[in-house]
Computed example of a mutant assay.
Amino acid sequence: MTQADRRHDRLAVRLSLIISRLVAGETLNMARLAAEFGVSVRTLRRDFRERLMYLDLEYRRGQCRLRSTGGGVQGELDALTFAHRAGLADIFPGLDRRLAGMLLTAGGMPCLVWQPPQSVSPAISLVFFRLVSAITACQRVLLLAEGERCDGLAPYRLISLDGCWYLTGELNGHITVHPLATIHAVTVLNTTFTPRKRLNQLTIQAGFIRALPHFSCIREVLSQAADNGGLG
């Protein structure tokens, strides 16, 4: 990964965390935020001025917060931001601010994205939240799954397919896939990681996503083939 790629990844993580905190209602202290991300206040102000200019922000005495507008334009922007970050924007043809506003204010249910339902326990909800937090901050995790303990796993992306969620990540240089339903516990570690570009791009390819339910079988076959000296 080039230095420019690493700088871009750090910027993406920084902006994602800032947006999530603002939308959650936090008031951000610019000096403390700059120290947390290891950048100057000047760099942080440039982030806000050039990259977050579409947010309705209020600045006072070195602090910044999102103005409470009760929906409207800000609600539309929040919906668009969420849709793009979750990879849902392409589901709705021509999704823009006007369409987002219409969907937010419409009565009834004008659109329905249907998948077979999956019951979710409170424990799974906590696991999901911790994984999203770790992915956003590029932090490694200790993951306990059925018959597996993955210490130092780098979580890349959570993907929903046919009503089931799958965690994709990297451990010891190899891609890993865990169905969310098989994960018992997640501990977010203090160690960070830089996503490998090749593996990160693999997790958004259609062929890889379609193969998620069969990943453990594919891995086992490849492992046996390697033990037997290859497929030939």
Results as ranks from 00 to 15, higher is better:
R32W: 08
V188K: 02
R130F: 14
L95I: 06
H84L: 07
D9G: 08
Q63Y: 07
A86R: 03
I209L: 02
E50L: 10
P116W: 11
G169T: 02
E148S: 09
A4W: 06
R210K: 12
W165M: 05
E36T: 13
R42K: 14
G229F: 00
L95E: 11
D56P: 09
I18Y: 00
D90H: 14
L180W: 08
F48C: 08
L99W: 00
F48E: 09
N172Y: 08
Y156R: 03
I135M: 15
E146A: 13
G163P: 07
M1I: 09
G62P: 07
L103E: 03
S16R: 06
Q224N: 06
E146M: 03
S119M: 06
F48M: 14
V127I: 03
V186T: 02
G70E: 10
H214Y: 11
Q63S: 10
I209S: 10
A89W: 04
L189P: 00
P117R: 13
E146P: 00
Q224A: 14
G232D: 15
L88V: 05
S119L: 11
G152N: 01
I91N: 12
V177I: 09
G147A: 07
L44C: 01
Q115C: 11
R51K: 14
L11G: 04
V23L: 07
L77Q: 10
L88K: 10
I183A: 01
H184G: 15
C150G: 06
G229V: 00
W165V: 10
I18L: 09
Y166T: 12
P155Q: 10
R14M: 09
A89E: 10
F37P: 03
R196F: 00
A24L: 11
E26P: 12
A83V: 13
H184C: 05
R61P: 02
R140Q: 13
P116R: 06
M109A: 15
L112T: 02
C164Y: 08
L33H: 01
V23E: 13
K197A: 14
R157G: 05
W114K: 11
D78V: 11
P122C: 11
R14L: 13
V127K: 02
V41E: 15
Q205P: 05
L88Y: 13
L199K: 01
G71E: 04
E170I: 10
L189V: 00
I159T: 15
T27G: 00
L15M: 05
F37S: 05
A211I: 01
V73G: 03
G62C: 15
A181N: 12
I135V: 14
L126W: 08
L95T: 05
H178N: 12
L11M: 15
C164G: 01
H178P: 02
R42G: 12
L57A: 15
Y59S: 06
S133D: 11
E58M: 06
L153A: 05
N190Q: 14
I183P: 04
M109R: 06
P155G: 02
A35K: 14
E170N: 09
